[in-house]
Simulated scan of single mutants.
Amino acid sequence: MEVLWVNIIGLLLIAWIIWWFWLGPKHKAGKEVAGGEKLHILVKDGVYEPDRIRMPAGRPATLHFCREDPNPCSEWVLFPDLEISAELALHQETLVEIPASAPGEYPFTCQMQMYRGVLVLEP
């Protein structure tokens, strides 16, 4: 009987971890930001804010990341589809240059993929 309870508690713990890191309140859809002169992305409390950025395709842009989260996971931002990575300085603005790219959705994450966002390039 004790083995059954240990297994039930273990399964509940696994379900909670999955919910917390991938489905929980930290990863709800954020506001969309239209492209402008300065696009600021705040890195704080386990999220990118905003986590969805809309910009025109075919034009280079600069994203301004401000990292306020001391968590080591937040040290890097990766745009794997664009082959871009940048180390984010704590409590400083870090500029990330986005080259002119084709329309589409380009995810960006931390190195452990716990922080998530999407760059949407529109035609």
Rank of each mutant, 00 (worst) to 15 (best):
G10Q: 11
S101Y: 07
L63Y: 05
R67E: 09
D81W: 12
P72K: 14
L39N: 06
V96D: 01
W19C: 08
V120N: 09
K31H: 06
K26F: 11
I84F: 12
A34F: 00
W76V: 05
F79P: 04
V6R: 12
W5K: 02
E87W: 15
P107A: 12
L95P: 08
V33R: 02
Y106H: 05
D81Y: 13
R54C: 05
E83L: 12
P60N: 13
V96Q: 10
E122C: 10
V3A: 00
V43L: 12
A89C: 04
Y106M: 03
E93A: 03
V43N: 07
A102S: 00
L42N: 09
G104C: 01
E32H: 10
S85N: 13
T62Q: 14
I17P: 02
F65M: 04
P107I: 15
V6I: 03
V96P: 10
R116L: 04
G10V: 08
G58Q: 05
L11W: 15
V43C: 05
A15C: 12
T109K: 12
P123G: 01
C73W: 15
E83R: 15
P60K: 13
S101A: 10
P50S: 08
L42D: 01
E97A: 09
I14C: 06
C110G: 00
A15G: 02
A100I: 10
Y48C: 06
S85V: 08
K28Q: 13
W22L: 06
S74A: 15
I41R: 09
G30L: 12
T94S: 04
Y115Q: 00
G24W: 14
E122N: 08
T62H: 11
M55D: 04
Y115A: 09
P60M: 13
K26P: 08
L78W: 15
L13K: 00
Y106F: 15
M112C: 09
A61M: 10
K26N: 06
V3I: 00
M114R: 07
K44C: 03
Y106W: 14
M114T: 01
L90D: 12
A61L: 00
E49H: 12
Y115T: 03
L63P: 10
A34C: 10
E32I: 03
I8W: 06
T94F: 03
I14G: 08
N71F: 14
L82S: 10
E68Q: 15
L121Q: 03
F65Y: 10
P56A: 13
V96R: 13
L4Q: 07
D45C: 09
G35C: 11
V43Q: 02
D45Q: 07
W22K: 03
L11K: 08
G104L: 09
P60W: 11
I14H: 02
A102C: 01
E97K: 09
V3R: 04
K31T: 07
L42E: 13
P25D: 11
P50R: 12
H91C: 04
L11Q: 09
F108N: 02
D69W: 15
C73T: 07
L88I: 14
R54I: 09
I84V: 10
V77C: 12
R59I: 00
V47N: 01
M55S: 11
